[in-house]
């Protein structure tokens, strides 16, 4: 844990130098929920979807993952073999940078959130927000593991960016960003509720916006826990296979 703190600190300082790049990332994270806010508020003004999309913006900033930029690039540039020499699991390095970037996202993103709140004052209830907080943490963990597992494809192919991009597209479509899950067509909705994409993004925002009743919240949390377990197992499996390949082929 101290080690992880050390890495978070180190990358936090390192990203201070790359703040304009961080700003790009945040701006691009923020823009899709805001477009969603604009579009869906135009389509269904009476449903007060602005609460949902503001919550979604916040969740997105807190769960952003760029292992394709950090980890995969590191593999491509050949720096990764240094990580293998470290006397602790190398994933700590990646996780440390992930957390540092998320902290920067919040710092940079707060003014954006504040501006949006000025334009479209939300009516969130604090009980709902409190209820959503554990879901945000779970979502952040699932999202990290998911992106990390996809980014590990760098051990096999040169285009890990595309693999992670594909994952992001699925999260966009089925995670509650293109449209709130409740508005998806009946044929798709049950799937979207169960798949991990909602657990990574839409679910916490739905709780915070007060759109779910008690049973639905419980069900969502259950799905999150299940997916967290699945992702842990999956990421570990991919990691082991990748390391075996890396140490044999030599990257």
């Amino acid at each position: 844990m101290r080690l992880l703190g050390g890495y978070v600190r180190r990358y936090f300082l390192q990203w201070l130098a790359w703040r304009s790049f961080a700003l790009t990332l945040v701006a691009n994270q923020a823009v899709t929920p805001l477009v969603g806010l604009a579009v869906w508020s135009t389509v269904l003004p009476e449903r007060r979807l602005s609460d949902y999309f503001i919550a979604l913006l916040f969740v997105r900033l807190l769960t952003s993952s760029y292992e394709n930029h950090t980890f995969s690039e590191w593999v491509y540039q050949g720096g990764f073999c240094d990580d293998l020499l470290l006397p602790h699991p190398p994933v700590l390095v990646t996780l440390g940078e992930n957390i540092a970037i998320r902290i920067w996202h919040i710092i940079i993103g707060l003014p954006i959130v504040a501006a949006v709140v000025l334009f479209a004052p939300p009516s969130l209830r604090w009980q709902d927000v409190a209820l959503a907080l554990p879901a945000v943490v779970l979502a952040a963990a699932i999202r990290f593991l998911f992106t990390y597992a996809l980014a590990l494809s760098a051990f096999w192919i040169e285009r890990a960016h595309s693999v992670v991009g594909l994952g992001s597209t699925l999260i966009f479509l089925l995670g509650g960003e293109a449209a709130p899950i409740a508005l998806l067509p009946d044929a798709v909705r049950p799937w979207a509720e169960a798949l991990p994409f909602r657990a990574m993004l839409g679910f916490p925002a739905e709780i915070a916006a007060g759109e779910l009743n008690g049973a639905a919240v419980g069900m969502g949390y259950l799905w999150q826990v299940i997916w967290l377990a699945v992702m842990v197992v999956a990421a570990q499996a991919v990691w082991r296979a990748g390391i075996r390949r890396y140490t044999v082929v030599g990257g």
Binding site: L23, T24, T32, V35, A38
Partner: peptide, 26 residues
């Protein structure tokens, strides 16, 4: 130190929908 690519790429994404859906200022 300022990198305008930031604002540009983000604003650019707003182009996929009619400008009529946005707040008048935007």
């Amino acid at each position: 130190g300022f990198e305008p690519s930031v604002l540009f790429s983000a604003f650019w994404q707003l182009g996929r929908y009619p400008v009529g859906v946005y707040h008048p200022v935007v």
